[in-house]
Design a protein around this nucleic acid. Structure first.
Lengths: 228, 228
DNA sequence: TCAAAAGTGTTCTTCGTACACCCATGA
DNA sequence: TCATGGGTGTACGAAGAACACTTTTGA
């Protein structure tokens, strides 16, 4: 067993946002220090001696991007000895989901060093952050099929087509609308409201749905087979 | 962002073994230093500056228990600031599976400080190692339902009933033998040999099965719905 | 009246699930 | 011949998958 050790511990966050206009996107920050100066990277940084890992992620997100997220989960720990060219740093990666209002606000503040990038057109990233995003995207895809976490990416009320487009976008494959609706309806955590979607162009306006918090959280705990 | 940091990085391993006689078991070591002196704990220790996380796990397992494992996967990182009473230590936990021959050999060397404990009769453990085992057991249970990793716990050739008992033991619930066999057979990675089980008592001897490595590894990558 | 998007049902097949009797062996 | 454990099939219901036309709205 090594008697002394010189390894630093960091956290990094892959924050996903979604709008039907921009698709599935990831929040990145531009580095202003070496190494990888001026390259895009995941928000994150060293863990404080007294804070938990989750606290460290939340703190870094607030410091670097100003956002609060409503869903956060540990992803994987990356420990390749040479993943940081300076010293050895292991990174405990998390992924998070934010609702579209957060997404929109931040997309507007383009003076900042934080920006959203569509998952399909990511820039060249610092460190092994490209790999981390790949792992996070895979996790999101598979999680979407057995837990209803997709709702964490939507407004409180949304037309059904919004949920459908989210699934299409994240899974990156077409879905049959009728089968999808049948499947979702069976679980019973969706409630149809009497309101209708505000129109933004041609087409029949859809009814708005919300989810039943109780049933939703119950199912989120249990896990369900969500295959679409 | 903290300017300096005083956190150590450790790995811990939850190694599962299985025999139909002893059920699902976990490999533990007896601590001979403080804190928690003389308490049982997971094998593990600090990561060396130059080694990968997986290398650190394999090294610690060899040093502390003498075993080599054939399946190893990262489980979760535990970062509670007070999980170690001395300094802050985060632990990156792994879980591993070993085949019964390894299990038997080690169970015999009872002079050592390492021993197998049935998952249902674990001793009081050091640190948060009880929690880590719970997480590992949950992961194994759910993984068993969508990836055929159960075979990593069996000999190369085994009677079908052995696989069935493994599932019953890990999932801790009864399974219908006929439905189970139908399900497993559909995947097509099992091959029936012409050999028969060596008898150890009364009862009809079962045919021995092996798995088709190619199909097995293909499915292990893809993941399948294994619900029993 | 046309283009755009939402809403809706049926059929076929596959899979899950419940369930009980016969067979080969050792004692 | 008995006790033990292995081996096997059927029938029902639920869910997955494939598939196209009608409705509502804005332009």
């Amino acid at each position: 067993m090594p008697v002394s050790q010189n390894i630093k511990v960091a956290v990094d966050a892959v924050v996903f946002g979604y709008t039907s206009k921009d698709g599935l996107s990831v929040l990145l920050i531009k580095r202003n220090i070496k190494p990888y100066k001026d390259r895009w990277a995941l928000p994150g940084g060293l863990v404080g001696d007294k804070e938990s890992l989750e606290q460290a992620v939340q703190r870094e997100l607030k410091e670097e991007t100003g956002i609060n997220i409503n869903y956060l989960e540990q992803l994987f720990s990356f420990g390749n000895p040479v993943r940081d060219p300076r010293n050895r740093v292991i990174s405990i990666a998390y992924y998070g989901l934010v609702k579209p209002d957060v997404f929109e606000v931040n997309a507007a503040t383009d003076a900042s060093d934080a920006a959203w990038f569509n998952i399909k057109s990511l820039p060249h990233l610092a460190f092994d952050h490209g790999d981390i995003i790949t792992v996070a995207h895979d996790r999101l895809k598979s999680k979407l099929l057995y837990q209803p976490i997709g709702f964490e990416l939507l407004e409180a009320k949304f037309p059904f087509s919004e949920l459908e487009k989210l699934y299409i976008s994240v899974l990156d494959r077409p879905i049959d609308r009728r089968n999808f609706k049948k499947k979702i309806s069976r679980f019973g955590f969706l409630e149809e409201t009497t309101e209708k979607q505000a129109l933004k162009g041609a087409g029949r306006p859809g009814n708005l749905f919300r989810f039943n918090e109780k049933k939703y959280h119950l199912l989120q705990k249990q896990g369900i087979n969500f295959e679409i």
